[in-house]
Deep mutational scan, measured.
Amino acid sequence: KLETFPLDVLVNTAAEDLPRGVDPSRKENHLSDEDFKAVFGMTRSAFANLPLWKQQNLKKEKGLF
Results as ranks from 00 to 15, higher is better:
59 K>L: 08
27 K>L: 15
21 G>T: 09
61 E>I: 11
40 F>A: 00
26 R>W: 08
35 D>G: 04
37 K>Y: 15
32 S>V: 04
16 E>V: 11
48 A>C: 11
46 A>P: 00
3 E>L: 13
51 P>H: 03
23 D>H: 06
5 F>C: 05
31 L>P: 01
19 P>Q: 03
5 F>H: 07
2 L>C: 14
20 R>L: 15
41 G>M: 09
64 L>T: 01
20 R>G: 12
8 D>L: 10
15 A>F: 10
64 L>V: 04
16 E>S: 10
12 N>H: 10
61 E>G: 06
7 L>E: 03
16 E>H: 12
27 K>S: 05
23 D>N: 09
37 K>S: 13
46 A>S: 10
42 M>Y: 05
8 D>C: 13
44 R>M: 05
43 T>W: 04
6 P>W: 04
30 H>K: 02
63 G>E: 04
52 L>V: 12
11 V>W: 06
52 L>A: 10
63 G>Y: 05
21 G>I: 07
14 A>K: 14
59 K>R: 09
47 F>T: 07
64 L>P: 01
14 A>Q: 10
1 K>R: 13
36 F>Q: 00
34 E>R: 08
41 G>I: 02
16 E>P: 09
28 E>M: 03
16 E>Q: 11
47 F>V: 00
62 K>D: 01
64 L>G: 02
35 D>A: 07
9 V>Q: 10
46 A>V: 12
58 L>D: 01
50 L>C: 03
29 N>I: 09
1 K>Q: 14
31 L>K: 00
40 F>I: 02
46 A>K: 10
47 F>D: 00
7 L>H: 04
47 F>E: 00
17 D>V: 07
57 N>C: 15
20 R>V: 15
17 D>Q: 10
39 V>Q: 03
31 L>R: 01
29 N>C: 12
34 E>L: 09
41 G>A: 09
17 D>C: 15
65 F>P: 04
60 K>F: 11
39 V>N: 02
11 V>H: 05
8 D>K: 09
25 S>Q: 14
13 T>R: 10
3 E>K: 11
34 E>Y: 10
57 N>P: 00
54 K>G: 06
17 D>F: 09
25 S>A: 15
57 N>E: 15
5 F>M: 05
10 L>C: 04
18 L>N: 04
3 E>N: 10
51 P>D: 06
29 N>E: 14
47 F>Q: 00
23 D>K: 04
48 A>H: 13
32 S>A: 07
32 S>Y: 02
36 F>N: 00
6 P>K: 03
